[in-house]
Design a binder for these strands. Structure first.
Lengths: 339, 339
DNA sequence: GATCATGTTGACTACGTAGTCACACGGGAG
DNA sequence: CTCCCGTGTGACTACGTAGTCAACATGATC
């Protein structure tokens, strides 16, 4: 039916209706001073009547800025990344920026560079790299806009790269210290994929806690965040009678670990303590309810974005406030070590 | 440091370097015919040298279209919605559209209307309403662009509203029929929130299957998609010895139900069969592994978006192909009824 | 040899907004 | 009374792209 999409009204249309110049409409819409109250009212009324909306394209063309933040995310429905994305969007909108996401595909070499290119093509003022970066091939494209990396970017960081590291390392340390504090001689770790920052940082925290306590460092097991990979790691752990405490890098893998241990007849927490990470909503309803580390994604997103926007708008970016944003949630999958 | 953001090169810069007119550069960048190979090469080389990228803002201003799809999503990290969002983005990018999401807050009255307004302000050619709509207050703003609703929109649908209903009803029917087919006298249902389309459609499918089999319809239990709400429903079900089969509207709630049943000492599937929905990655690793219905979000997103883009680009939209896109995944939480 | 289709290129212009600058008005300072 | 300044308003213009139309070359057709 309504095949002809009518041209939306512009500031000139509003101006004509209000009997003022286009420039005055622009002033009113931008809340500039030096407009009399009477005219302001008249313009606003005309705008309301016509259903006027500023044309972003024209605005962006004129100002040279898009007021848009782009995010490169690994396309996964994992709880952690999904939550982070939602918080980033909320935060961006709160400070007046639109929000674009591009998902790469796991295992897609060079996918990050292509995703960034795609964002630059659609027009963004800044880019957030939210998840992993390709292993060897760092994406050496010149973005021409500031980039916020939520993990340590390999290679020499350009002048426009901001690295904001969420508190994954603290989280790993906290989980490990909890288990050591319960008297376990050491703590095993089921990590995420090597190429994820979050994964590497959690490993780092685990190592640091072990070293600080003088505990021996067991070999590292690694999964891919999925319950299936946790299950595989869990079978290996179940077969080793020395294991009494495990820190699993996310709750999904912990589900797989718990399943494997139950299958092998190793009681949790009777024989083995397990700590997860993320505090997914299901964590409290597993068998047994899972002790886990929760991260405050909202705070982290706000901090990171604030730094990026400071850079975009040419302000000196304040040093990261660096308040710790993790919290251990104790449930029934851990208990003191009894030989 | 690099505080001054240099103006990015434009088509005129490329034209100057290549010794042609700006218009010719435009032609080359758009792959138009009637450009000699020699000039095409020269322009491409110049563009590469300068790092030229078309300016979306200018393009959008000139063409009157943004090549951007906006999505209003309820901000939850639930597996189903998150997966749907990712697939929508993939699909949109595949057909040359950029992608903007705005998350509303659960329980935010009028949030959908505000989210749509926010999308229109940033400039989109079409809007997808991906999750629920506010109960009574339908968002009667005039978007001026086509709207794709992934569920039945209340009230008189404007000429620009396309309703594309994913196969939630089929899914509900399939789950219920599976349990009836195992001989259970009837099937109980733990639904999602009333205001979600997905929830209402699954209920409809459940009802239809019961009616078709002549089975009595037990009272409806409702949760809010969370394991916690599933746990509450599970306690109620556990207390009722008549219950032998339950269809839970998503896997997260099913986790809560399983937990409640285990706590109450009701064996699954020994005394009670449970079917979930979504096939979250953890489903196979629960105790017991969960029988569930999987939806093909990729296909559904592709179909819906295709219709929306047809409308945006002024084509007659083809009728929905309507291939079924659900599949029952049988695991160990269901078994034949034995009185 | 004039005509004409076809291929190739460029000049000019519109798109809607906001920055720059100019101007008009009124009142207080000199 | 004049000068100047703060306030309020509008004319003109740039932003980068692509549509329109004109110009021109080439080679085929009548």
């Amino acid at each position: 039916m309504s095949g002809t999409r009518r041209r939306p009204p512009g500031s000139t249309d509003v101006a004509r209706l209000a009997g003022v110049s286009q420039k005055t409409v622009s002033r009113v819409m931008n809340g500039e001073p030096y407009v009399s109250d009477e005219i302001r009212e008249r313009v606003l009324a005309a705008a309301r009547e016509l259903g006027y909306r500023r044309n972003t394209a024209a605005r962006a063309l004129n100002l040279g800025r898009f007021h848009r933040i782009g995010v490169v995310s690994l396309g996964s429905a994992l709880y952690g990344p999904a939550t982070q994305l939602i918080e980033l969007e909320r935060r961006a909108r709160a400070i007046g920026y639109a929000f674009s996401v591009v998902h790469t595909l796991e295992g897609d070499e060079g996918g990050v560079a292509r995703a960034m290119e795609s964002l630059l093509e659609q027009g963004v003022d800044g880019i957030v790299l939210s998840d992993p970066i390709d292993g060897g091939q760092e994406p050496r494209i010149d973005p021409g806009v500031p980039v916020l990396s939520l993990g340590p970017l390999p290679g020499p960081s350009g002048p426009d790269v901001i690295v904001h590291r969420p508190s994954n390392e603290d989280a790993g340390r906290e989980a490990t210290e909890h288990l050591l504090g319960l008297g376990h001689p050491t703590v095993w770790h089921v990590a995420g994929p090597e190429r994820w920052w979050a994964s590497r940082d959690r490993v780092r925290g685990w190592r640091a806690a072990l070293a600080a306590a003088g505990a021996p460092e067991p070999p590292l097991l690694a999964g891919d965040w999925t319950p299936a990979s946790g299950y595989a790691a869990g079978r290996a752990l179940a077969a080793n009678p020395d294991v009494t405490a495990v820190f699993v890098a996310n709750d999904d893998m912990a589900i797989g670990v718990l399943h494997a241990l139950a299958e092998a007849g190793r009681a949790v927490p009777g024989e083995m303590s397990v700590v997860g990470m993320d505090d997914i909503p299901a964590a409290a309803y597993l068998a047994p309810p899972l002790t886990t580390v929760r991260q405050d994604f909202a705070a982290s997103a706000a901090q990171g974005l604030a730094r990026l926007v400071d850079r975009i708008e040419g302000r000196q970016d304040a040093p990261a406030p660096d308040v710790p944003t993790t919290r251990l949630v104790t449930r029934r999958s851990t208990r003191p070590y009894r030989p």
